[in-house]
Design a protein around this nucleic acid. Structure first.
Lengths: 219, 219, 219, 219
DNA sequence: GATGAATGAGGATTCATTCAT
DNA sequence: TATGAATGAATCCTCATTCAT
C-alpha cells in the first residue's frame, strides 16, 4: 500500500490528532506525486532524481523516503493513481449507450474525454510511454494497454460481429497505435491547431473503420 | 570522423601489417557499434553504460575509448551511420517514378523498403525514438523527421495541389505518426502477423488519403 | 559562496536543531579544508585525489561533494580563505606608519607577520606555489602576486622616488623572489635555526636595498 | 642502465649491424628524451602522459617502453643526463683559478655558465623543481642540491675561513635560494630585461656576501 | 514526522603499461 | 624492432538510499 507512512497500520478508531496527522500525510503524498509528475514530464523517469522530486515538492529527501520506499514506488503509485482515474474515465467513455450510436458520434463520445484527460494529465502519457522504465511501471503500462485493447475489441466486435479474434486484436492495436501517435501530435500543439489534430484523428479512424462495419447499429 | 582510432596519421602507402591493423580497428568499431545497438535497444541510451557496451563487445572499457571519445559519440556515430543508410533508402523509396503511380502502388513502393530497413535495423528506431537523449542525437532525430516530413509533404502536394501548407504539414504529421506507431506493431510481430500489420498500415493510409486526392496521377 | 551545503535555503529564523546542523556543516567544511590542506601539502594539487581528501577527513566521497562541487572548488575555497587572511595580514604589515620607519625596522614590521602567517599555514604556500594547477587557483596566485608586487613597489617608491617604473618592478620582483626562496628555507627549519634563517633573509634584503635608498625617511 | 634496450647486454665485440642498431637505439633514446624534456617543460612531470611523450617523439607508446621501463625512468634518465652536463659545467664554473679572484669576478665566472646552461636546458629546471615528483627524481634533485651546496660552502669557506659550518651551510642555502628564485625571473624574461635580472642577481649576492668576506683573496 | 548530512556503489573517463602482429 | 590496439586500475563525480538529530 504505497503512499501510507511506514510503520503505522492504524485500523483502530482514530481520534482527532492521528487523523490530522494522516491528513497531513496524504497531503504530503499528493505534494510528492505532483512534484514527481512534473519532474517525470520534464526529464523522463530515468533522469528524474529523487532529490529533484523532493526539492520540487519542497521537502527533504528523507521525507520523501518516509512515504515511498524507493524511486520506482513513486512512479508506480503515480502511474497507478492516474491509471485509476483513467479507468474511471474509460468507464464513462465506453458507456453502453455510447456504443449504440453511429460511428462518428461514438468516436466523439469515446475520444473526447480520453483526449481531455491526457491533456490535463501529461504525466500519465509520459509514464505510460518512456523507455528505460523498470518492471513494475511497465506492468502497469501493459495492464492499461491490455485493458484498453479489450475495451476496443469489445466495441469493435459489436460493429463487426463476424470478424475473427485475431483480426479484432489487430485492428484494435492499430486503432490504439493511431490514437497514441495522434495524441503526441495533439499534446504538441495548442488551440486551434490542437483541435485540427483532434479532428484529423477522428477522420483517420472513421475512414479506417467505416468500411469494416458490417452490423447496422441504429435501428 | 568518429570511429577512427585517435592519433592515427597514416597518409603513407600502407603495407600489409598496418592495413591488417586498420582492418582490425574497423572490425572493433563495428563490434562496438553492434554492441551499442544491442544495449541501446535493450535499455535505452541513458541507461546504457559504456562498460556494458564494452562488455557486450567483449573488450575492456579502455578499448572503447580508443575509438570513441565518449558515450554520446557512440550513439551519434551509430545514429549517423543508420541515418546515412536510411537517407539512401529513402532516396530510392521516394523515386520520382514511384510518385507518378496510383496511391496503392505508391504506398507499396515507399513503405516496403522503409519497413524492411527498420526491421533489419531495430536500433535505428530505438535511437530515433527515446527520450533523455543528448543534443547531438536529438538533432539527428529532428533532422530525420524534418527530412521525412518534407518528402511526405512533397508527395502529398502532387496529390492534393490545392491543399494549403498548414494542412499539408498536418496531414504529413498524421501519416508519419501512423507510420511510426504501426512500425512499433510491425516490429513487435513476426512472420504472417507482421505481414498482416504491414497490410493494415497500408489500408489505414489508403483510406485516410484516398478521399483527399484531387489530382489524377495516371494519365 | 563555496563551502555552503548545496540547495540550502534557510532564510527563516532557525531554531536550535537547524543551527546545530548548520554548525555541523561548517565543521565538515573545515574538516574537509583541513584535510585538503594536508593532502595538498603532501602531494600537491594534481596528485591529490578527492577520495584521499575525503578519507583524510574521515568522510565518504559523497560527503565531500555535498559541500564542494568538484576538486578545483576545494582548492579555490582553501586558497581563497587563506588569501583572505593573507590580505588582512598584509594590510597590517604594510601599515603607513610602518613605512615611515628606517629600513631595518620596516623589514621587521613587514616580514615578521608575513613569515608567521606562512609558518602557521603551510598549505597557503603549497597552493600558491605548485604547477599543474587549474585556472581558478592560478588566478588567485597571480592576484596575490600582483597585489604583493604592487605593495612592494609602493614602499620602494617612497624610498627611491627617482627610480623608474621598470626598475621598481624589477627590484620588487627580486625582493619577492628572495622572500619566497627564503621562506622555503624558513619553513624547512625549526627553532633557533628557523630564526637564524629569518635573520639571514633580513640581512640579505637590508644589504640589497640600503644602497638604493635615496630618500631619507626619518626627518 | 636506462636508455639501453632491454634484454641485451652486449659486452661482446659487435659487428656493423648491431652497432647500427645500437646507434639507432641511441637516436631513439635521444628523441624520446628530447620529447620528454619538451612535454615536462610544458605540463610538468605529473601531467605529462607517456603517450604524449611518445607522440611528441613521433613514435608509438610501445616503442617508448622498449627503451624505458616506465614513466619515472624517463624523467630519471633525463634528469641524470642533464645532471651530468650540469656537473661538468659546474666543474668548470668552480675552477680553482676562479676562486682566487675577487668576488665580483668570481660571481661572473660562476654564475654566467650556470645561467647559460639553465637557459639552454629549461627542462633541467622544470625537473629539479616541481612537486608531485616521485622518489627517484627527487633523489637526484637532492643530490644536485647537496652537491651544489657543498661546492658553494667550499668557496665560501675560502672567503670566510673563520665562519662555523652551520653558518656556512646557512649562507650557502641562502645563496642557492636567491639563485633559484632569480633564475625563475631570468628564465621568465628575455633580451635586455633578462640581462638586467642577471645583473640584479649579481648585485644581490655581492651586497650580501661582501660584508662577510674576511680573507683577502687577491694577493 | 521532518531534516539534510552521510553513505557508498556505480558510471564515465584516463593513462601507464602490455602484447599480438 | 616498431606498432598501436588492448588492458584495467584509478580518478572524478552522481545519486538512490539511510540515519542521527
Amino acid at each position: 500500500m504505497p503512499g501510507t507512512p511506514k510503520g503505522k497500520t492504524t485500523e483502530n478508531g482514530e481520534t482527532a490528532a492521528p487523523r490530522r496527522r494522516q491528513a497531513r500525510g496524504e497531503r504530503r503524498v499528493s505534494q510528492l506525486l505532483a512534484a514527481a509528475a512534473g519532474v517525470f514530464c520534464r526529464t523522463g523517469y530515468a533522469a528524474a532524481s529523487t532529490n529533484a522530486i523532493a526539492r520540487e515538492a519542497g521537502v527533504s529527501p528523507g521525507t520523501l523516503y518516509q512515504f515511498f520506499p524507493n524511486k520506482e514506488a513513486i512512479a508506480v503509485e503515480l502511474g497507478g493513481q492516474l491509471l485509476q482515474q483513467a479507468h474511471e474515465m474509460h468507464g464513462q467513455a465506453f458507456l453502453p449507450e455510447n456504443l449504440q450510436r453511429p460511428l462518428p458520434e461514438l468516436l466523439d463520445a469515446v475520444l473526447d474525454p480520453v483526449i481531455a484527460f491526457n491533456c490535463e494529465n501529461p504525466a500519465f502519457w509520459a509514464l505510460m510511454h518512456g523507455s528505460g522504465i523498470p518492471g513494475a511501471i511497465d506492468q502497469e503500462h501493459q495492464q492499461l494497454h491490455t485493458n484498453l485493447l479489450g475495451r476496443v475489441e469489445g466495441v469493435l466486435h459489436t460493429f463487426c460481429p463476424e470478424a475473427g479474434p485475431a483480426e479484432l486484436t489487430r485492428t484494435s492495436n492499430m486503432i490504439l497505435g493511431i490514437f497514441k501517435s495522434s495524441l503526441d501530435l495533439i499534446l504538441a500543439h495548442e488551440g486551434a491547431e490542437r483541435e485540427a489534430y483532434i479532428a484529423e484523428l477522428k477522420t483517420v479512424l472513421l475512414r479506417y473503420l467505416e468500411p469494416m462495419i458490417t452490423a447496422p447499429h441504429s435501428d
